[in-house]
Amino acid sequence: MKSISLYIDNGSWLCRMHPFTKLAYIAAAISVPLLAGRLWLFAVFIALSLAVLASGHLLKRVVPLVAFSFTILITIFLIHGLFNQQNRDILFSIGPLHFYREGLLYALHIGCNVLNMLLSFAILVLSTKPSELVEELEKRGFSRRMGYIIISVFQIVPQMMGTMNTITDAQRSRGMETEGSLATRAKAFLPLISPVVMSSLINTRERAVALEVRGFAAKQKKTYLADRTPRRGDKPITIVLLALIVLAVIWRIVQCL
């Protein structure tokens, strides 16, 4: 079954790191540059994220993620470079199109922010098993119902995709064409999507029964199969990251005074 999670256990140190440490990194990477408001800090964190990803052998797998948000970044550069209200100085022109300094700088800010967020999240997403993250959260008091919802999504989506294949076969068997002109494909839309939507809703009845009979509503404190104690490096790294955030907040307050 194909997973929608991007996690693959490649045995690197990143995969073994405690998920909370990675969460702390995301918090620091996003908040510090925003609080300090310096463009070069974005660059620092982007570089740091890239270095971390590289040492965890994940650099190659981050490419599609960046490519995914590339179209929206280009739109932002185009629209603001050309039309931003603050535009004064023309930086360069391509034919009749004039790109302005102010707009491009603004777009650069947004772009750096997006890229920074993307890369810091990528560290967590690519190296952490979702169920591990949820389990650790549950152990710290996170609602187990919410925990179930999150993990269940990772099971249900690939399952629905699998059902889609069966449904396609079933409807083709009844003489429905799925290939051809746009009109043919559009006509196929309802017979394909409707069974998967309806059956996934109808199946919830039995799934709920299955949870009930396995003590889902029990009040006892839940226990876990795996025992994950934080590694040696986890604690100091988390402390440093949190300290950075605090420093940035102080810096911001001092600036405002």
Partner: peptide, 27 residues
């Protein structure tokens, strides 16, 4: 059998343990 799976576990071993986890059975 398909709808009896908890839908929250990605391997058989953990799937079987799901009910016990809820009831707080020691590891």
């Amino acid at each position: 059998p398909f709808n009896q799976l908890s839908g929250a576990k990605d391997n058989v071993y953990e799937e079987v343990a799901f009910g016990m986890q809820n009831l707080g059975v020691p590891r």
